[in-house]
C-alpha cells in the first residue's frame, strides 16, 4: 500500500517477564525486520495488521490511524486494508481453489472477479485446479 509512512510505537505484554516495546518509522517501500526467534517480529506484524492488540501505543499509516490506545482507536482488521502472508498456508479447506482465490475480492462484480482470478492462476500455470479443494492438490500447488 503506497499511502505513506508507517509509524509504530507500541508496548505489548507477552508474559509477566517480557513486554515487547517497539518504536520505528518505515517509509513506503520494503522494510525488513530482523531479530532472534522470540524477539517479537511476528507480534509487531500482528499488531500492525490488527490481529493482536498492543497494551499501549499508536500505529499509523500515512494519515490513517490504525491504533491509538490514548484515543481508544482500534480499527477492525477488515477495514485496515492490509495484505498479510502468514507463516502457515491459510487456504480455506472447505472452499474450492476458485473460491479461495476470490475470497478477498468478494465485492467486485462476478465476471471481473473471475477474470482476475483466471489471470492470476494462469500466471502460476495452475488454472486447471480451480474446481478442487486444498486437500486435493499437491504441496507445491498450494
Amino acid at each position: 500500500m503506497r499511502d505513506g509512512r508507517l509509524s509504530v510505537h507500541i508496548a505489548y505484554r507477552l508474559s509477566n517477564s517480557f513486554t515487547l516495546e517497539a518504536q520505528f518509522e518505515a517509509p513506503a517501500g520494503f522494510t525488513m525486520i530482523l531479530g532472534p526467534s522470540g524477539a517479537g517480529k511476528t507480534t509487531i506484524l500482528n499488531c500492525i495488521a490488527g490481529l493482536a492488540r498492543p497494551d499501549a501505543g499508536r500505529i499509523s499509516l500515512g494519515a490513517r490511524v490504525l491504533f491509538d490506545s490514548d484515543e481508544r482507536i482500534d480499527m477492525p482488521v477488515a477495514e485496515r486494508r492490509l495484505g498479510y502472508v502468514s507463516q502457515n498456508l491459510a487456504l480455506f479447506p472447505h472452499l474450492t481453489i476458485a473460491q479461495n482465490v476470490q475470497y478477498g475480492i468478494a465485492r467486485m462484480p462476478a465476471d471481473e472477479r473471475r477474470a482476475r482470478m483466471m489471470t492470476m492462476l494462469e500466471s502460476f500455470r495452475i488454472a486447471h485446479l480451480i474446481a478442487r479443494k486444498p486437500g486435493q492438490i499437491s504441496g507445491g500447488e498450494r
Binding site: 495488521a49 490488527g50 477488515a78
Partner: peptide, 11 residues
C-alpha cells in the same frame, strides 16, 4: 490462521 486470513481479506 483461517479466521485471521478471512479478516485480512476484508471479510
Amino acid at each position: 490462521d483461517l479466521i485471521n486470513a478471512s479478516s485480512i481479506l476484508g471479510a
